[in-house]
């Protein structure tokens, strides 16, 4: 008994040597937990969905706007605009009816025409759900601490999570498939009208080549001849 007490006294220094750092770490976590607001579950799901969305560079879909259905393929990347020297980041959208829409940082435009695209074409572009474009909208909302509302529902023939958020051009709802958070459907309403898209993220070389061919993008230098 006495020898145990003596041993305890002898190694008492270990108590402060290890106990204080452990307390520091525990107090650190506790203070942060008390001081800072935690994001809601819906917000965390939205952030995870955004991460999944940004993995893709191509998004295919079937859009319905008004009563017209049309397929869409969005390819994003770095392009050299006509009469431009520097590469710019942008999105090219090819619709099934042959319409070519693009945005290289100066607003959504229809290839072959001057000025910004009309409202309906802008809605078509939104519905094409280009990952970076859609990711910008959702990311901005999350950074500004805007509310993202989540709901369990069904989409694309399976269980889905609905993430509703307000974008500058009106409310948007992104449906993601749990547990991968892969985007399966996008709905928009507001100034551009109402519409939805059945999403199929990713696409092979054939899809990219088709879009590049339609936009007459030289694949080596990716020069956009819109």
């Amino acid at each position: 008994m006495m020898s145990s007490v003596r041993a305890l006294i002898r190694f008492r220094w270990l108590l402060s040597a290890l106990g204080v750092p452990v307390c520091v770490a525990a107090v650190g976590v506790g203070v942060q937990g008390v001081a800072f607001r935690r994001p809601t579950g819906d917000t965390l799901v939205a952030a995870a969905a955004l991460e999944e969305l940004l993995r893709y560079h191509v998004m295919r879909g079937t859009e319905e706007l008004g009563r017209t259905r049309v397929t869409s393929t969005c390819v994003q990347g770095w392009f050299r605009p006509p009469h431009g020297h520097r590469l710019v980041r942008g999105e090219l959208v090819l619709l099934g009816n042959g319409t070519r829409l693009y945005d290289v940082g100066h607003g959504i435009r229809v290839a072959g025409t001057a000025g910004l695209a009309p409202l309906a074409d802008r809605a078509r572009f939104l519905l094409a759900a280009c990952p970076r474009f859609l990711g910008e909208v959702l990311g901005e909302r999350l950074i500004k601490g805007a509310r993202v509302h989540g709901d369990r529902t069904a989409a694309d023939g399976g269980p889905a999570l609905l993430l509703a958020f307000r974008a500058p051009r009106g409310p948007m709802a992104l449906y993601v498939s749990p547990p991968s958070d892969r985007p399966v459907e996008l709905r928009i309403s507001g100034a551009h009208g109402r519409g939805w898209t059945d999403l199929n993220p990713g696409g092979g070389r054939a899809a990219i080549r088709r879009v590049f061919h339609a936009f007459r993008v030289a694949t080596k230098r990716r020069t956009l001849n819109a």
Binding site: W13, V20, V29
Partner: peptide, 24 residues
């Protein structure tokens, strides 16, 4: 020995505090 123990605690406190951030 007690002071040595507290000294070791002081050495380890900065890493311990820094670790609390990723844990949080």
């Amino acid at each position: 020995p007690d002071q040595r123990g507290r000294g070791i605690a002081a050495v380890l406190s900065a890493p311990a505090a820094a670790i609390s951030f990723p844990v949080y």
